[in-house]
Computed example of a mutant assay.
Amino acid sequence: MRRVTPAFVLLFLSPAICGAGLWDLIRSHRELEVITVTEVSTESGFRPAASRDQPHYYVAASLGYRDLGGQIAGFKQPPTELVLRLISAELAKQGYLPSTSRSGPPTLLLCYTWGTLNAERFYGPDPSRPPLQVNRGQIVRFLGGHKIGLDQAFFNPLTAPMVGLTANSYDARNLLEVAEEDFYVIVVSAYDLDAALEMRRKPPLWTTRIAAPSLGFSLADVMPAMLAIGGQQFGRETPRPVWINADDKFTPNVKLGELQLVEYLKSDPLPVTDASETKVEKKP
Rank of each mutant, 00 (worst) to 15 (best):
A119R: 02
Q232A: 15
V178G: 00
M199L: 14
Q152S: 12
T107I: 05
I148W: 03
T107L: 01
V59P: 08
L261Q: 03
G230C: 02
K202F: 05
A60D: 00
V4Y: 06
Y170V: 15
E177S: 14
P157N: 08
S99G: 11
T278Q: 10
D53R: 09
V222E: 07
L193C: 06
C18T: 10
L117H: 08
L110G: 09
A228R: 01
P271D: 07
A228H: 04
R240S: 09
R201L: 13
T166P: 13
G230V: 08
G137F: 07
R236S: 12
Y170T: 14
A50I: 09
K76P: 13
S62C: 06
S14K: 03
Y96D: 14
V40Q: 03
G124R: 06
T116S: 13
V280H: 10
D248C: 00
K279G: 13
G137M: 12
K266E: 06
L193Y: 05
W206L: 03
K283T: 14
R121C: 09
V280L: 14
V280Q: 12
K76C: 11
V280F: 11
V83C: 01
L68Q: 09
P284T: 09
F154Y: 14
F183L: 01
D126R: 00
M1A: 15
M226R: 02
S41F: 00
W23K: 04
P48R: 01
T159M: 12
I17V: 15
F250N: 13
L68T: 07
L108G: 06
Q54Y: 04
D182W: 01
E43W: 04
P78L: 02
S44T: 15
G69E: 03
V272L: 07
L265W: 02
G137K: 04
S128G: 14
F46R: 04
G115A: 05
D67C: 14
S103W: 03
L82C: 04
T36E: 02
G149S: 10
R102Q: 08
Y191Q: 02
G149C: 13
Y123Q: 13
Y112W: 11
R3E: 15
D126P: 03
V37Y: 00
G95A: 03
T116V: 12
D24M: 01
A190H: 01
P79G: 08
G257F: 04
A20W: 08
L158K: 14
D126I: 08
V280K: 05
D53K: 06
S14T: 04
R66H: 11
A61G: 13
P269T: 12
H146W: 01
G104K: 12
K76R: 12
I17P: 04
L10R: 15
F155D: 12
T273V: 10
F250W: 06
V59Q: 13
K282F: 04
H29N: 11
R30D: 00
L265S: 07
R121N: 07
I244D: 09
R141Q: 15
P6I: 00
E277R: 10
L227N: 02
A211G: 09
R201I: 13
